[in-house]
Design a binder for these strands. Sequence first.
DNA 1: TGAGAGCATTCGATCGATCCAGACCACAGC
DNA 2: GCTGTGGTCTGGATCGATCGAATGCTCTCA
Lengths: 346, 346
Amino acid sequence: MSTPARHTDSAPTLATVAEEAGVSRQTVSNALNSPDLLRPDTLVRVQQAIDKLGYSPNRAARSLRTRSSQLIGLRVDPAVEDTANALMDRFVHSLVESTEVAGYHVLLFTAGADDDANEPYDALLRSAAVDAFVVTDTFRGNPHADWLSRQGVPFVAFGRPWDEPAAPHPWVDVDGRAGVTLAVDHLVERAHSRIAWVGWQKGSLIGEDRRSGWVARMHEHGLSTSRLSARGDDSLEFGQRAAHALLDVSPDDRPTGFVCASDTLAMGIIRALADRGLVPGHNLAVVGFDDSIAAQVCTPALTSVRQPLEQVAVEVVRFLGELLAHRPIENPSLVLTPTLSVRATS
Amino acid sequence: MSTPARHTDSAPTLATVAEEAGVSRQTVSNALNSPDLLRPDTLVRVQQAIDKLGYSPNRAARSLRTRSSQLIGLRVDPAVEDTANALMDRFVHSLVESTEVAGYHVLLFTAGADDDANEPYDALLRSAAVDAFVVTDTFRGNPHADWLSRQGVPFVAFGRPWDEPAAPHPWVDVDGRAGVTLAVDHLVERAHSRIAWVGWQKGSLIGEDRRSGWVARMHEHGLSTSRLSARGDDSLEFGQRAAHALLDVSPDDRPTGFVCASDTLAMGIIRALADRGLVPGHNLAVVGFDDSIAAQVCTPALTSVRQPLEQVAVEVVRFLGELLAHRPIENPSLVLTPTLSVRATS
DNA sequence: TGAGAGCATTCGATCGATCCAGACCACAGC
DNA sequence: GCTGTGGTCTGGATCGATCGAATGCTCTCA
């Protein structure tokens, strides 16, 4: 088997393999990159030499020559502990798996303490450390997308360019509006008619999109939305306050169902209900958004809209492949539909 | 400002900068790597040329020559959605930040569908894609550590080598036993005397370590541990079953406090209490382990042992630095102490 | 028989940085 | 004046892969 401490020895190179197989360096290179160029018997001979020596091409050398690092940059923001961040975990896992299938790896970086949040993107690209980026900004729009586009930086976004629907870069997004529609339908089926919305400020276009699903579907069901909407920041505290405010009205006006822009807000509502000695379930329902781990393990378990992150990752990587191969993408945008994970709170 | 589509043009190289500054390539290289070798006025001239051209050294070329990629490999396991996995999120963020300060980046990879889980490590190292690894296996021991050590692979572990305390590689770990001790003390202060342990099977050495904190501290307080312990897998369902079993005894024998090996188990206990119409708080207490997001947002919010992951990451990177500089590490192991995040369930 | 086509393989140059050895210069000491 | 020393800077070789052009070879067909 392998010698101990082998990794302190010098590794075999193309030249080593070539000598072992009795061919030239280029032939070994071809055996790896375009095997169909070789005569079958030569290919076998080279393969045996490669296996015998345990050879793997040096990525730095290949990268230098081909001008491609086979790395995809992904920015991870400073660790804010909330449910949305935990959501990224699922996405990152899927992304890593998908990129590997395509022969790439994922490189993580942060914005650092720098004033200019674009700087790290530029630096990584200038030094040819990565071939492209995956940009994710799920809460508000993509502040970087615009700048990156103008700079000619290759990237694919998770999240659509709200401010500029005709943006040229490829993107994949989840239909938040459709997700909320699912939630409303679900509560209507459960005989709820006064269904409230607890979401984000008007500034968040994602928030407005999700909210629009509530407004539209409520009206389609012939239900009123008046005085049933609350807007604030994405915090448990706001969810809690909003629920209390919505419930502090005459009994007939009280909502019996809550649809939220995030699981964090939904958790706040559950806490507000607990403050009042209430538990969501049959008569009172709460639906979150993101299907975070917290939604799954809390008691009672939270019904939540689940984004198909695995599929998002796959599609993002597909776009990346096209982009890096300089193939034109006929339809560089894709909207996927979420599902509803029904649990105890509804 | 910068020209649009600049990244499709060819980037400046050392030679470009050298010409611009009227010096040789080597001098530019020195300006970057050992500025003290240059005369101050030359350094300024070179710096100006660098700034003017917006030059960044090509990582592939540097990596090829210096035989160092400045990348640290980190394996992310297939996305199992549980509270422990979310914990890694915090660690990864901190790790990325710490590595950047040290001039490194983090590269993610998976074990893939391969039979041999060591293969990806070997492949990345053979191809010189990474300089070292960070290995994390928080649930059971480090199955890879042994193999990696024998292969001479440079790595630092988060989690101590339970099966071989004298293992030669550097590692950083959190004192789970001390964390549980904190939890027990906290409940004793709150006047609990029948405090149960809900943890993992005997096979898990981490689990045994945590449990030993409970056993020892209970006895130090002169409290009995008999018939107050449950062991099973790390699932909400087991936590729930265990709590029911522990409570299905005569009233005098019932535990009033629960200390758990994980937040997942604690969530199961909370659910079991809910099944019985009980809510943890004053008379009944539950303490989790990991301080996951779920612990923070569920209702009632869960008291939990918090691992100092940010500090772990910093120390791991410090060890990595020493390791890669081939400096001997006098004391290559470090145990950090967790804290207790006190919330509503206690 | 010899020109031409097609395939398998080889050779030299190259990507962009750093290593290494040595050149140049100013200044001190004998 | 000549050697020695230390601080600066330079040019060529090198890391290990791929690119591009060219070679040798076999086989076909006039």
